[in-house]
């Protein structure tokens, strides 16, 4: 257990990693808040109905449909975009880790990081949802 083996004792990397997570959460929360404000202004008096699960209710179930809504400044779509940014924050953290392990030449952990990314990419491909 030599100390120099542990790349993450490196203060710089920890700082970047922490900042990445914090900025990711902050940015997505700002987007969610902005979209949410728009959504509330437009639809505050509508009656909610979440009693029965309807997969097609939101219409915001693909990155393409969310993008389309964001372009048209639709409040729900902007909120959903914020949620997507939030989901990608920890994923971005894994991407960053892969690079830092690459710099460190710890190829075993580059591989492990890529494996985790691959799992998330497979689930992102939308082939698993029946």
């Amino acid at each position: 257990m030599k100390k120099e083996l542990n790349f993450y004792s490196d203060k710089d990397v920890q700082l970047i990693l922490g900042t990445l997570l914090r900025v990711g959460v902050m940015v997505s929360m700002i987007v969610i808040f902005a979209g949410g404000t728009l959504y509330l202004f437009g639809r505050y008096s509508e009656v909610i109905d979440y009693r029965v699960f309807d997969p097609h209710k939101t219409g915001l179930t693909s990155i393409a449909s969310v993008y389309k809504g964001v372009v048209h400044l639709d409040g729900s779509a902007i909120t959903q975009f914020g949620v997507l940014l939030l989901i990608f924050t920890p994923v971005a953290r894994v991407v960053f880790s892969v690079f830092s392990f690459l710099v460190e030449r710890d190829y075993l952990y580059v591989l492990i990081g890529l494996l985790v990314l691959a799992i998330i990419l497979v689930s992102l491909s939308n082939k698993l949802v029946g």
Binding site: I32, G35, G36, Y39, I48, Y50, F53, D54, P55, H56, K57, T58, L60, T61, S62, G75, S76, A77, T79, Q80, V83, N126, V129
Partner: peptide, 11 residues
């Protein structure tokens, strides 16, 4: 992808 994340609730 399945439509379980509703922005009105997630917000």
């Amino acid at each position: 992808h399945r439509g379980q994340i509703d922005p009105g609730i997630a917000l």
